[in-house]
């Protein structure tokens, strides 16, 4: 029995790691654009968090009104700049995605015509 369980475990492991090569799903490495967009979003959320923190500091009396407004304005400007970058990144991403789709279609057509019939992506 232990040998059977061990063999099943080994077979399951082989199946799981082989699936990306053999299954229908096609994978691609995460694009730089996607990562940049995620980074910008995270940075924007961090700025929002900072604004929330300085609001709490101001409410508690840890910050003077002048300091609070100064810091808040600087953070808002940073957030606005990031939003602008994000907007730019999205439009260029759409263009790149379109180009990528065209390339995938071209490669699929080419693959279908090849004698081996394998995936070449």
């Amino acid at each position: 029995m232990p040998i059977v369980i061990g063999t099943l475990l080994a077979l399951a492991a082989i199946a799981v790691i082989a699936y990306p090569f053999l299954g229908r799903t096609r994978y691609r490495l995460v694009s730089e654009t996607f990562v940049t967009r995620e980074k910008l979003r995270a940075e924007r959320l961090r700025i929002y968090r900072k604004i929330s923190d300085i609001e709490a500091d101001f409410t508690s009396g840890d910050l003077t009104e002048v300091d609070y407004q100064q810091q808040r304005d600087l953070l808002r400007i940073s957030a606005a700049e990031i939003l602008r970058e994000e907007a730019g990144s999205k439009s260029s991403r759409a263009e790149r995605d379109q180009e990528l789709e065209k390339e995938i279609s071209r490669l699929r057509e080419k693959t279908a015509q090849s004698p081996e019939g394998g995936d070449t992506l």
Partner: peptide, 23 residues
């Protein structure tokens, strides 16, 4: 080498190490 399938497969191998350690 930019081979996405290999990266995904390696990640899944990592998940399977948990199964091995658990067994």
């Amino acid at each position: 080498i930019g081979m996405a399938e290999l990266v995904v497969s390696a990640r899944r191998a990592m998940y399977m190490t948990l199964a091995a350690a658990t067994v």
